[in-house]
Computed example of a mutant assay.
Amino acid sequence: MPTGVAVACDAGECLAVYLAVETGDDEDARSASEVSQLARDAAQGDGWVVSFGFRQPVMTCPGCADGRGPVRERGYCRRCMGRVDTESRCVYCLRQVEPFRPEAG
């Protein structure tokens, strides 16, 4: 079964999460260090800012890095999981988001 890795914003009270990478199935063994690096690279490539705290990288979402955060309302933005406005733009990271279409069922 495929598993994934998420990156969370380190800014205080921020709810931003980036669903960074799919690591493959159980037979595709990777070290925790390798998976963490893949997640950091993916998030950084999508506008997250990496800095270094005490012995480890610290990730900051695009909204907090640019002063529009912290993300306080969850929504459908793939980049930070922030709320999306009526024009399909994330109010935190300003990413244009495909309009949400609930599955028929």
Rank of each mutant, 00 (worst) to 15 (best):
V71A: 13
R72K: 12
V91S: 02
T23P: 03
S51W: 14
G105N: 03
E27G: 05
C14H: 13
C9S: 04
D46W: 06
Y92I: 01
A8I: 05
D85V: 02
E22D: 10
G63D: 15
R74W: 15
C90E: 12
G69S: 04
C90D: 14
E22I: 06
C90L: 04
V21P: 11
D41N: 06
V84F: 09
D28T: 13
R78Q: 12
C64Q: 12
A16P: 00
F100K: 03
E13S: 02
Y18D: 01
E27H: 10
P2A: 01
S51H: 11
W48S: 04
A42K: 14
R101A: 08
G12P: 05
P2G: 03
C93Q: 10
V97Q: 07
Q96S: 01
A6V: 01
R30E: 12
E103L: 15
S33P: 00
V21L: 00
A65P: 11
L15T: 06
P2W: 01
A104K: 11
P62F: 00
A43K: 11
F100L: 03
E13Y: 10
V7D: 02
W48A: 02
R30L: 14
L38P: 05
G75M: 07
L15H: 13
T23G: 10
V49M: 14
A6I: 00
F52L: 03
C90T: 02
D85A: 04
V5M: 08
E73R: 15
A32L: 10
C80L: 11
G67H: 15
R55Q: 03
S36I: 05
R79P: 11
E34N: 10
C80H: 13
A65V: 15
R74P: 06
S51L: 07
A42Q: 09
L19K: 07
G63N: 08
P2E: 00
V21T: 04
L38S: 04
P62Y: 03
V84S: 05
R89H: 10
D25K: 15
G24Y: 07
E98S: 02
D41S: 13
L19S: 06
A11K: 11
V71R: 09
R101I: 14
P2D: 00
Q96P: 01
S33D: 02
G67V: 04
P70I: 03
F100N: 08
